[in-house]
């Protein structure tokens, strides 16, 4: 009985220290987060359920932070943009990219891209016009890189970025061109 009480006391002490430490570290951390995760912004412009394909390709709104928000598009819009010769950006790492990708896609590895300055990003993407449509994708809808990479590009001054969330997995399943 005494042991049980001691155990409960130990657990409470550890929990208490960890909670205090956790909140303190989150407070001083450069990558701190709010108490509740907010994903509402990421899918603010979602055209995946719009019926008219032309509307799906519409450009995002100018954000108050001074960039055009990427638009979430479904596979049929992605395919149509692909047929029009739009640039596809693959955000996965080079080895995954080399294993297989949407035909003609270029590789911008999110992990290195996110740490670049705006100028460095623009140098890397110098062949792409700022007003040109860009489709960002990654492996599948369970990876977040397509969204994050799209926002990185939008913030770097690319004004018409689309997110194709289904990614390489959905593209391949449909039997669309890969390489």
């Amino acid at each position: 009985m005494k042991l049980k009480k001691k155990l409960i006391r130990e657990i409470i002490i550890i929990l208490f220290i960890s909670i205090v430490l956790g909140f303190f570290l989150n407070f001083i951390s450069p990558k701190s987060i709010p108490l509740v995760r907010d994903d509402s912004q990421r899918f603010e412009i979602d055209t995946s359920k719009v019926k008219n394909v032309d509307l799906k390709k519409q450009r995002g709104k100018l954000d108050k932070d001074g960039f055009y928000r990427p638009v979430n598009i479904p596979i049929e819009a992605a395919k149509q943009l692909f047929d029009e010769g739009v640039v596809f950006v693959d955000g996965r790492n080079p080895s995954e990219f080399n294993e297989g990708r949407i035909k003609g896609a270029i590789n911008i590895d999110y992990k290195t891209f996110k740490d670049m300055t705006k100028e460095e990003k623009q140098v890397l993407m110098k062949d792409i016009n700022k007003e040109q449509v860009i489709v960002s994708y990654c492996s599948s809808d369970s990876c977040e890189i397509s969204i994050d990479n799209a926002y990185e590009m939008a913030r770097a001054g690319y004004n018409d970025v689309k997110i194709f969330l289904g990614g390489f997995k959905e593209w391949k399943q449909k039997g669309y061109p890969v390489e």
Partner: peptide, 26 residues
């Protein structure tokens, strides 16, 4: 926010040997 510090605190306690049973439960 909390899981990393729980891991850290109970890991440290296990090594230095205090609150061993509490740490192993956590």
């Amino acid at each position: 926010i909390i899981i990393p510090s729980l891991e850290l605190v109970s890991g440290v306690f296990l090594i230095i040997g205090i609150f061993k049973r509490g740490s192993s439960v956590i």
